[in-house]
């Protein structure tokens, strides 16, 4: 069970959070091509190591968070609000 230090709620069990993976930027809908769009929909780097992922404190404050997590050890070294600075 991960322990995630939510900037609003403090340390909470990982089961309160929903994982959303490493976000990829949404192509410009006006000019996108099928190939570019489907890369956006489906392709993944799927790295083994430190990644910046998006999580949601779904069973808590429902904030969207960016979490730096090591995908091989599940170690977490930083949690911050999406689009915001650390509180």
């Amino acid at each position: 069970m991960l322990l995630i230090d939510c900037p609003y709620c403090g340390p909470r069990n990982g089961s309160e959070f929903a994982w959303q993976g490493v976000p990829s930027p949404r192509p410009d809908p006006a000019s996108t091509t099928p190939l570019e769009w489907r890369r956006y929909l489906y392709e993944e780097d799927n790295l083994a190591g430190w990644v910046e992922e998006r999580w949601k404190h779904r069973s808590g404050c429902r904030a969207y968070l960016i979490i730096e997590r090591h995908t091989a050890t599940n170690e977490i070294r930083a949690v911050r609000l999406l689009g915001g600075t650390p509180l």
């Binding site: 929903a18 949404r26 998006r54 949601k56 429902r62 969207y64 999406l82 689009g83």
Partner: peptide, 13 residues
């Protein structure tokens, strides 16, 4: 509900 929140949080804060 999640879907609406996601659009607001990630694309149109």
């Amino acid at each position: 509900y999640d879907w609406l929140e996601e659009w607001l949080a990630t694309a149109h804060p």
